[in-house]
């Protein structure tokens, strides 16, 4: 007889709020705000159009993966899509929601190069099998000490990498975010080295928890969240998840990524969630689970995914490799 013990962060299928309930909540919000929006006619029309476009053609069908979902209640669609760090659209948290509509995500192609057996330029649907989409409810812990719970839709990052056949010499993977100044007003401000680059060790990228995200709450991923495809490795700080990826490069050397390049003493390449290693300017011991006022949620080692990922770092000094 197979006895499977459930991990601390696993969610029984019964605890997941059925999608129709979330959808109806959205409907309610929309109806309730429709009157208000009506007052500002121009804005109302713009909002209405954007919403219906997503509703009409943006639906994704995915199977919920209870094994890789946490039991924490997810944040609302509004929260997840209106409070974002995506500096290419601006530095304020509401800038991405305001400006990301300008980004043209169709058509989209991803250049795959470096130590791979099948280099080339791929369309999104060549890298992501849209018939095998999963929904996973992940915790997202930002390095700024806030967190959310997000029902992503996507495929294991490993399945994407397997399609391009990493060579045995490959040890790291580097992701590059799109850089289009005409569509991304934040690129005018040189706060980071553009284009944004992120990376993972290959074994981290191949870990079943590393997720290539293409959707959110049953919909195609909104631009401000990194459309059309972005990475999320939930045991790492949020900035490790490259958004709007245009290039995937396999390499034998640790890539020079954007945040550690900007401030090497504050942001490391690994950026594993670790309550014991503070950011130089603030503690990482607790977090603000938005929209909570209080930073009262204890931060868990590896964001609570330690059972799955701690072995990746056996023997490593996580204070030095922060």
């Amino acid at each position: 007889m197979l006895i499977r013990s459930r991990k601390s962060w696993e969610l029984p299928y019964s605890a997941v709020t059925p999608e129709p309930i979330y959808r109806s909540r959205r409907e309610f919000m929309r109806t309730a705000t429709a009157g208000l929006l009506g007052a500002a006619a121009g804005t109302a029309i713009a909002c209405g159009d954007a919403d219906s476009a997503v509703g009409a053609q943006g639906r994704l069908t995915a199977t919920r993966n209870a094994k890789y979902s946490v039991a924490d209640p997810p944040n609302s669609f509004e929260h997840i899509t209106s409070y974002n760090n995506f500096y290419e659209f601006g530095l304020d948290k509401d800038d991405p929601a305001r400006y990301a509509g300008r980004l043209k995500v169709e058509p989209w192609s991803v250049k795959v190069d470096g130590l791979v057996g099948r280099p080339g330029t791929y369309g999104v649907d060549e890298l992501v099998d849209f018939n095998a989409l999963e929904e996973r409810i992940y915790r997202l812990r930002c390095v700024e000490a806030w967190s959310m719970v997000i029902p992503w839709i996507g495929v294991p990052l490993a399945s994407v990498l397997q399609k391009v056949e990493p060579l045995p010499a490959a040890r790291f993977v580097e992701f590059t975010t799109v850089e289009r100044p005409s569509e991304m007003p934040g690129l005018r401000v040189p706060v980071l080295e553009w284009p944004y680059r992120e990376g993972l060790r290959l074994d981290e990228a191949m870990h079943p928890l590393s997720f290539m995200v293409v959707g959110l709450y049953g919909q195609v991923l909104p631009n401000q969240n990194g459309a059309p495809l972005r990475v999320h490795s939930p045991w790492k700080y949020g900035f490790k998840g490259a958004k709007s990826i245009v290039r995937i490069r396999l390499t034998d050397r640790q890539p020079r990524t954007s945040w550690p390049t900007m401030a090497p003493h504050e942001y490391g390449f690994y950026a594993n969630v670790n309550p014991e290693v503070p950011h130089p300017r603030w503690s990482q011991a607790r977090e603000r689970r938005l929209p909570d006022f209080f930073a009262r949620t204890p931060t868990l080692m590896f964001n609570g995914y330690g059972d799955e990922v701690a072995s990746l770092y056996a023997g490593m000094d996580l204070r030095r490799n922060f």
Binding site: S82, Y83, K93, R288, L290, F293, A295
Partner: peptide, 11 residues
Amino acid sequence: WTGDLGVNPAE
């Protein structure tokens, strides 16, 4: 009072 402080009201 009106709950208009955004997603991260404390911030």
